[in-house]
Amino acid sequence: MIKIAIIGFGTVGQGVAEVLMEKRDYLRQIIGDYKVVAVADSKGSLIGDFDLLNAIKIKRERGLPEGMDAMEIVENQDFDLLIETTITNIETGEPGLSYIKKALKRGKNVITSNKGPLVVAYSELIELAKENNCKLLFEATVGGAMPVIKLVNNCLAGNKILSIKGILNGTCNYILSRMEKEKMPFEQILAEAQELKIAEADPSYDVDGIDAASKLVIVANALLGIDAKFEDVEITGIREITPEAFDVAMEKGYTIRLIAEAGSNGLKVSPRLIPLQHPLALQGTLNALLIKTDLAGDVVVVGKGAGKRETASAIVSDLIQLYG
């Protein structure tokens, strides 16, 4: 019996819980029996014997009841796996960083969707997992449902990764591809994206390249073995791009996308000219990664970079990687 604690019970945490229920019969065949023994968020928690679907209902209707706080659960409760889906803070990594550290120190496996802890302390966490003979998996932190970490570590095993270039922020890609089509100013398309809930009320995290840079730091550490920190990324956002820029670019057969790149020349997130027929000249909120390898040549993955079920897909794939 795998005992699971879910810390962070927002969209992602609930999405995972739903999939764990929905696919229970199927997952049992692969990883054996499992049970969620604790769910917690910043305001409350449920522990022990409770119905998971009911927990989601309670959370939506009135919030989780006050109870043992999240840190106490991570420190003292009996579980095998921590699924950490708290909110991202790329400056401190908290609160996720403390939860993950504590769980690893106790020798518990951890799956996280939270970029913050990995951006702040990648090598420390990997080292901690090694020391305590447990695993830390984080497929959901980069590219949502798009397979990246396991694709490279499993399917491209044996390859040296020379560089990676990709679209790691769906909001920017949506805005740029709409600007390309509609020839409207950035502010107008941003307002449209906010209305569609593709962009947040404070869009700076996305449009200033911070989100893409965070994912790039994780990819550079995990796939290229570069001991990179957030400060190492040269970042240029998309606010200054004009509709006329697309006119001029398209006359020469190019479009413009926000590209995150890591390789021997360092780490960079910036708007780039992309040939219209290039695999990274994508429309809408898609994410993509072009991986340059020594044996396999170029490999491209495209997929949905965000969303409740998409993120749950990545977390469940980590679960199967751990116990399958």
Binding site: K165, I241, A249, S270, R272, L273, I274, H278
Partner: peptide, 12 residues
């Protein structure tokens, strides 16, 4: 001035 570099060049 914002510089937008191409992606397809080997030097980039």
């Amino acid at each position: 001035i914002l510089v937008i570099e191409p992606i397809n060049e080997e030097f980039s």
